[in-house]
Design a binder for these strands. Structure first.
Lengths: 103, 103
DNA sequence: GAAATATATGTCATATTTGACATATTGTCA
DNA sequence: TGACAATATGTCAAATATGACATATATTTC
């Protein structure tokens, strides 16, 4: 992960770690962030494929438009739990989720 | 999912849904629970393979023995986030995680 | 089988995540 | 362009997850 990418993430509010680690985000953190980004991108893909608006998706997952936006833009305030439960609510199978993570 | 399995889950504290749905847990909920169970079982497997105690793992992931126990026993108070961050802390790759989910 | 070690369970104050709301920004189409 | 729909961003009280602690229960070792 290069400096630019890291700075973008930090701007978004991701806690990257100490100054010491600034230039080499731990494998652990970056894998976690990558995971979330992959899954939330997939969520947006699914939603748009089905021609749903964020408002409509929000209703399905019993949340709000603003949280759906945060889900899809990878806001750090969003948990993996919510991302995955949203995918499941759209009918995604565990195997599909695994495929997304591997992609 | 049969009645016995469902009752076991409920005893553990899982919120299964309304009485009406008692006998047929939604696909969504059961996939989510399955996912967590697969990953937390994998966590225990990894820990024991490496001959770590729960206390030692707790140190690695900066948590406590009791929470590690809850992680591994699939306590509903534990988030997917924590399970996955724990796996990553043990060096599991995203592809490994995907494999576990598909298994 | 007692002592020692490991794991499970219950509780709680604190921290993080949540849906909801307001409002800003972007995209679309007449 | 301007109006309208869709999405993004900021904030916050309420809900949920957290580490820590005490303590119960298994499991191992002698």
């Amino acid at each position: 992960m290069d400096k630019q990418k890291q700075q973008n993430l930090e701007k978004k509010g991701w806690k990257i770690g100490s100054a010491k680690e600034f230039l080499n985000l731990s494998e652990e953190s970056s894998s976690y962030i990558e995971l979330k980004i992959k899954l939330s991108s997939n969520l947006r893909k699914l939603r748009t494929e089905r021609k749903l608006t964020q408002v409509e998706l929000a209703k399905i997952i019993k949340s709000s438009q603003s949280r759906v936006a945060k889900l899809e833009t990878g806001d750090p305030s969003v948990s993996l739990d919510l991302i995955i439960r949203s995918l499941l609510a759209l009918g995604t199978s565990n195997k599909d989720i695994a495929r997304t993570i591997s992609s």
